[in-house]
């Protein structure tokens, strides 16, 4: 469990005990304590149906929490919607557009909806946003004729109409080709470098691992863990390949390696938890060799975020019931 922090000033998003029970009794989000540091690229993970989008809807003031509180950019939501949301760009549950309007006219309309947006700079801001997501050439086309990827880009452009302090992106690379995904990733890095906090929900763990500094994992409406990405995925395991597994296990056990398992010629084990007490890795190897173990391969495998995720949720990507 992540520690809920009282210092909301340094958090772009913080929630305490945030709960949503839909009519009909379904508990979609259950006592969520989320803390998103300012300036982070925060990955929000969870299988489909785990409550990610419900959480985002509560953060954006679209639905009212059943209990608990949420603060966005230091102000309470949904009470401060008017002063907070102009500083937030959001892409929620995929793009939604007026099919009979051109891409450019769609953005003009969304910008006109913001009472704090300056009408005189509207045209140039819309063009800049289109440029930024690579849609300038298709700006005059009816949105109905856009591919899913283009719609996604237009949705992103709407989130980028003004400089934002916080970007909330729900599955931003959905429907994009690999090239498009790369572009979005570099866009996210670029925005983060400018100091924008990016809150990114995704089920593409690879994506989170590549761009995020922090992550949280949800399952069945509950927060399972949150923290810096390295902390989530760095439970490294020692892997030794040898034709003498039994001997290797004995030697490593003596050196404090736990959870040892031999599978054929592959011996794996967990390194001691305390990093200060961790001896030089090469010493393990030297000890093995000194004991006459024929070492063919030696190294530490970092568990990927996906492994960590599956270990935490225990359900992979199945839809939660």
């Amino acid at each position: 469990m992540g520690e809920p922090s009282a210092q909301t000033g340094e958090h772009a998003i913080s929630t305490s005990g945030l709960t949503k029970r839909y009519r009909g009794g379904q508990l979609a989000v259950d006592g969520l304590d989320l803390a998103v540091p300012r300036g982070s690229v925060f990955g929000f993970l969870g299988p489909n149906g785990s409550g990610k989008t419900t959480t985002i809807r509560m953060l954006m003031g679209l639905i009212a929490p059943t209990s608990g509180a949420a603060r966005v950019l230091g102000e309470p939501m949904p009470r401060a919607v008017r002063s907070v949301l102009p500083r937030v760009g959001a892409l929620i549950e995929g793009p939604a557009l007026y099919g009979f309007l051109s891409g450019r006219d769609n953005l003009l309309r969304f910008d006109a909806a913001d009472p704090t947006a300056e009408p005189r700079t509207r045209g140039t801001r819309v063009d800049t946003a289109l440029e930024r997501v690579g849609l300038a050439a298709a700006a005059g086309k009816k949105a109905r004729a856009y591919s899913l990827g283009m719609k996604q880009r237009l949705g992103l452009a709407a989130a980028l109409l003004r400089p934002r302090e916080l970007l909330v992106l729900d599955e931003p690379t959905n429907g994009l080709d690999p090239q498009g995904m790369r572009e979005i990733r570099s866009l996210v890095r670029e925005l983060a470098a400018d100091g924008t906090t990016v809150f990114l929900s995704s089920h593409l763990l690879d994506e989170i691992e590549q761009v995020c500094t922090h992550a949280a994992v949800m399952s069945r409406g509950r927060l399972i863990t949150q923290g810096p990405v390295e902390a989530l995925s760095s439970a490294g395991r020692l892997v030794v390949t040898t034709p003498d597994p039994a001997e290797a296990v004995r030697v490593l056990k003596e050196r404090g390696v736990t959870g040892l398992a031999a599978d054929g010629d592959r011996v794996t084990g967990e390194l001691p938890q305390d990093p200060a007490a961790l001896p030089e890795l090469a010493d393990f190897n030297a000890a093995l060799v000194a004991a006459g173990v024929r070492v063919r391969g030696f190294g530490v495998e970092r568990a990927s975020l996906e492994d960590a995720f599956v270990a935490l949720t225990g359900e992979g990507f199945d839809v939660a019931g």
């Binding site: 809807r57 954006m60 003031g61 679209l62 919607v81 008017r82 949301l85 102009p86 937030v88 959001a90 929620i92 549950e93 995929g94 939604a96 557009l97 007026y98 099919g99 969304f110 910008d111 909806a113 913001d114 009472p115 949705g155 709407a158």
Partner: peptide, 18 residues
């Protein structure tokens, strides 16, 4: 139905104003 309502509201258009 089209989903555009949520984007108008997070713009934020303001519910009464919209």
């Amino acid at each position: 139905n089209a989903g555009t309502l949520r984007y108008l509201l997070v713009a934020p258009a303001g519910r009464t104003r919209l």
